[in-house]
């Protein structure tokens, strides 16, 4: 979890104003997502990894974050080549089932994987050089509606508290001789777990109410007034524009050159 929170990155990437970083990396993702070229996407990923290297973020860190999308992205990447119609490049026989892999499917799968990878890489770079806390204050300084920021912040803050409560409840269940692991369809198991989920729900609700009360007592009134703002340096803006320029370049360059190269194959 440390990865999420306070980060003391003293490289130029770490010192870059959080607002500039959020906007430029979000813009980077946005521009790159519309790319239909494998080479451009690979180029974008390389660029992010390079920025990371300059900020002392190791390549393994990026790869580790990539694992997050494996459950979803991996499955999609495996299925797509078989379901998208097009020129066949391979056929498999599974009993009576005949599976055909298509070139178009492969390309789609590769593009999808790369787009997701690029998104994960850029977000990793943002969090690892900024820290969750400063991203949140950055969003607030950008006048993102308070409720929106608060929801993200609360989710991250209270997921642990709720998980702890869940753990305590499960321990307390065991302490009174409850055996889980039997089938979920077992009636009593089902009833017990069901009512515990209910309790957890209630607790989450009453916790929310108490958190809200505590916020009111510190003068919260739906929208925080002043925001702590410190002006950013010209350098910050320059670097942010630089990041966006790279995305633009990859997009434009690729439209003329790379796509053509690949379609040749």
């Amino acid at each position: 979890m440390d990865f999420w929170y306070s980060v003391n990155n003293n490289t130029w990437m770490g010192r870059l104003d959080p607002r500039v970083k959020i906007v430029s990396l979000a813009g980077f993702i946005f521009i790159m997502m519309s790319s239909d070229s494998i080479a451009a996407l690979l180029g974008g990923m390389t660029f992010i990894v390079l920025l990371g290297a300059l900020a002392g973020i190791s390549f393994t860190m990026f790869l580790k974050r990539l694992l997050w999308i494996l459950p979803f992205g991996g499955v999609m990447a495996v299925i797509l080549p078989f379901v998208v119609p097009g020129a066949a490049i391979a056929q498999f026989h599974l009993g009576t089932l005949e599976l055909t892999m298509s070139v178009e499917g492969m390309t789609r799968a590769a593009l999808l994987t790369l787009r997701m990878g690029l998104g994960i890489f850029a977000v990793t770079l943002l969090i690892a050089t900024t820290g969750f806390g400063r991203i949140m204050s950055g969003l607030r300084q950008m006048h993102v509606p308070y409720v929106f920021v608060a929801i993200i912040e609360f989710t991250v803050r209270y997921i642990n508290v709720l998980l702890d409560e869940l753990k305590t409840m499960s321990l307390a269940r065991k302490a009174r001789g409850f055996e889980s692991g039997r089938s979920f369809l077992h009636r009593r198991t089902f009833a017990t777990l069901g009512s515990q989920v209910g309790v957890l729900f209630m607790r989450a609700g009453s916790r929310g109410e108490r958190v809200y009360q505590a916020m009111l007592s510190r003068g919260y009134c739906g929208e925080t007034g002043a925001v702590l703002s410190n002006g950013f340096r010209l350098l910050d803006i320059g670097l942010g524009l630089g990041i966006l320029a790279v995305a633009m370049f990859l997009q434009v360059y690729d439209a003329g050159g790379w796509q053509w190269l690949i379609s040749l194959k």
Binding site: F132, E153, F154, G219, V227, L228
Partner: peptide, 16 residues
């Protein structure tokens, strides 16, 4: 509830 100690302590004063 905030994500850092500093942010949390500043919550009240900022509201003021």
């Amino acid at each position: 509830f905030s994500s850092t100690v500093w942010d949390d302590v500043s919550f009240g004063p900022v509201n003021m």
